[in-house]
Amino acid sequence: MQAEEAARRWLAEQGVRQVRDGWVSDEKPEALLTANQVAHSWAGDVFAEDLSAAEQVRLAFGLLDLLDEYWVTCEIRFANESTEDPLPADVLWDGYRRRLEADRDAAAVTYSLWVDWFEDHTTSPTAFAEVLGNDIDQVVAQRSEALLRRARRVLECSGPVPWTVKEPTYHTAMRLPALNSAVFHGLLASFHDVYGDLEPAAALAILIRLDLPTNTPHRAELHHVLAARHKNHYRSPGAWDDAVRS
């Protein structure tokens, strides 16, 4: 909430304030703005502020908390990829981890991980390690609700992460029954995502060991395609239909 309130104050300094049905600016007070319009118009300006890079990142995450718009995460990544120094990694990834652990909707954060950080194989190893891989042992040992929430969210959107990067984390996560369903959804995404990545034999070995309800949707189909050594839905477009009919 502290970061969110700081972002609200910053927007007010820009002449932008929240009203009952949206947002308005002092420049055009008669025009009602959506949170998405506010994000597109002002989020990038955070990184032009006379603040340290760490303070800029924290302010940007505060805007994300306030607006709940994926575009804010785009501006964060644009700033990280600028020709100048990248953003401080400790602050950047702490911002992601905190929001993945929060007991509130995290769709903008998980979508950002999935389509921006995880689909890009130049960034996915680092991103996956920072949001889960580096501390999966701690997650399994401590089992706090916040850590489990983060783990579930990351595992479920981890389809595009290279198999060699995520496989050790899957193996550790599956030791905890509370994460077995999330590992399953990670495997499912690894097969179905356009950029999904898995090794069929290794993925099948994990699937067989997962403690899942017998009526888990798509479990049988996934077992079928992996046993047939298919790596990805888009590389074998008829394989899933064959599994459904079998």
Rank of each mutant, 00 (worst) to 15 (best):
A3W: 00
A3S: 05
A7F: 00
R9K: 11
R9G: 04
W10H: 00
L11R: 08
Q14V: 00
G15A: 09
Q18C: 12
D21E: 15
W23F: 13
D26W: 01
D26Q: 13
K28W: 05
P29D: 09
E30N: 09
N36V: 13
Q37W: 11
H40S: 07
S41Q: 08
W42I: 02
A43G: 06
V46A: 11
S52M: 09
A53R: 15
A53F: 06
V57S: 07
V57F: 08
R58C: 11
R58H: 08
R58Q: 10
A60Q: 06
G62Q: 06
L64P: 09
L67V: 13
W71L: 07
W71C: 03
T73V: 11
C74P: 01
C74Q: 09
E75L: 05
E81K: 06
T83E: 14
L87S: 15
P88N: 09
A89Y: 06
D90P: 03
G95L: 12
G95V: 13
R97H: 01
R98I: 05
D105C: 12
D105F: 02
A106D: 10
A108G: 12
T110M: 11
Y111C: 02
S112L: 05
L113K: 02
W114N: 02
V115S: 05
D116V: 04
D120S: 04
T123H: 06
S124I: 03
E130G: 06
G133F: 12
G133V: 09
N134R: 14
N134Q: 15
Q138W: 11
V140M: 04
S144R: 07
S144Y: 03
S144G: 15
S144Q: 06
A146D: 10
A146G: 11
L147T: 01
R152W: 09
V154G: 03
L155S: 11
L155P: 03
E156H: 00
G159F: 01
P162K: 09
T164D: 13
T164R: 08
T169H: 04
T169L: 01
A173S: 03
R175V: 01
L176W: 14
P177M: 05
A178H: 03
S181A: 15
S181E: 14
H185S: 10
H185I: 00
L187H: 03
A189V: 02
A189K: 01
F191Y: 15
H192Q: 15
D193L: 07
D193I: 04
L198G: 04
E199D: 15
P200M: 01
A201G: 08
A202K: 15
A205H: 10
I206E: 02
L212F: 07
L212N: 06
L212P: 07
P213C: 07
P217Q: 05
H218D: 11
R219E: 14
E221H: 12
H223M: 04
V225N: 03
A228H: 06
H230N: 04
H230F: 04
K231P: 00
H233A: 10
Y234K: 10
P237A: 02
A239Q: 03
D242Q: 05
V244A: 06
V244K: 08
R245Q: 10
S246W: 11
